[in-house]
């Protein structure tokens, strides 16, 4: 008799630490500068906002299918996972540690709206430092893997950080972009982007569009075990920073702009990419979706 399949446990609904514990090997996670050390943001109290004991991110070490990794998980429920001074410094410290000790990889569970405006300058600078530390870790030969499936997705400067990973796994509900829908609506008006049009928001930012664009490598179910499997498989993927590869990426991105630059909506883009029934894509389950876009996908080298 075979065991019944394990029930799905939502990644999106789980908190930052539960995600981390489920993605890493059971019992392997050791947190660094954990909540009991109370390294909180000193900038929130002045704004009458409560701080969090871990400033919204857990960082530490563990193993993934037996391989030693460093890992971090952002808590989207706390200030939208936004990066402040402490939050950012924990991530930068982890990535610097990675460059030095060369683990099998770094796994980033991203769930963030970007820079924390309540400490804006420190937040922007922190994202910049994360970006430099991440690319330095990669240059030192350590693969960095990103997972996007939380409630906030991955936006602002963290959207740039996410795309600087060697490999990226997303759920359909995970969202990735630079300026989020609310920011565009507030800044440019509802004519540019109506956030009440949820279908449009998913078409623009959701995992499926990112897969077609080639911005995400794996589309996974909203399931903790599926994200764990995706993280393990991405650990072997490298996008080495060479002139040759970046020239190929340049060509691919210029091709994207030339071919899709005049599209008005992602559905038009999917059609232009060669998807046969583009309007159906949002309705498809992952497997038939991947079959439908297999030839239209444009992975960035």
């Amino acid at each position: 008799m075979s065991a019944p399949p394990a029930p799905r446990r939502s990644y999106r609904e789980a908190g930052a630490r539960r995600r981390l514990l489920a993605v890493l090997d059971p019992g392997s996670f050791r947190e660094l500068v954990g909540p009991a050390e109370r390294v909180q943001s000193p900038h929130l109290a002045a704004l009458d906002l409560p701080a969090a004991f871990d400033d919204g991110v857990a960082v530490g070490r563990g193993t993934l299918q037996g391989r030693p990794v460093l890992a971090a998980s952002q808590e989207g429920a706390f200030l939208g996972g936004a990066v402040g001074e402490v939050h950012g410094a924990k991530l930068t410290g982890l990535l610097r540690l990675a460059a030095r000790e060369q683990p099998a990889g770094v796994v980033l569970l991203l769930d963030s709206g970007g820079v924390r405006l309540q400490e804006a300058n420190a937040g922007l600078l922190a994202v910049s430092e994360i970006l430099r530390a991440l690319l330095a870790a990669r240059a030192a030969g350590v693969p960095v893997v990103g997972l996007i499936g939380g409630g906030w997705g991955c936006f602002g400067g963290m959207g740039i950080v996410g795309r600087c990973c060697d490999g990226l796994a997303m759920s359909e509900e995970g969202r990735l972009g630079l300026s989020g829908p609310e920011v565009i609506e507030t800044t440019c008006g509802v004519e540019e982007l109506d956030t009440r049009d949820r279908a449009l928001v998913w078409r623009l930012y959701g995992g499926k569009h990112r897969i077609v664009l080639g911005e995400a490598d794996l589309l996974v179910e909203d399931d903790l075990a599926a994200f764990r499997a995706a993280a393990a498989s991405l650990l072997t993927r490298r996008r080495v920073l060479t002139l040759e590869r970046l020239c190929q990426a340049q060509e691919a991105l210029e091709g994207r702009l030339a071919d899709f630059g005049s599209c008005a909506d992602p559905v038009d883009l999917w059609a232009a990419a060669g998807v046969v029934a583009p309007a159906e894509l949002p309705l498809l389950e992952p497997e038939p979706f991947l079959a439908a876009v297999a030839r239209a996908r444009r992975p960035v080298p």
Partner: peptide, 8 residues
Amino acid sequence: PALVGVVA
């Protein structure tokens, strides 16, 4: 130490 809940 154990931590539960979230500041939201």
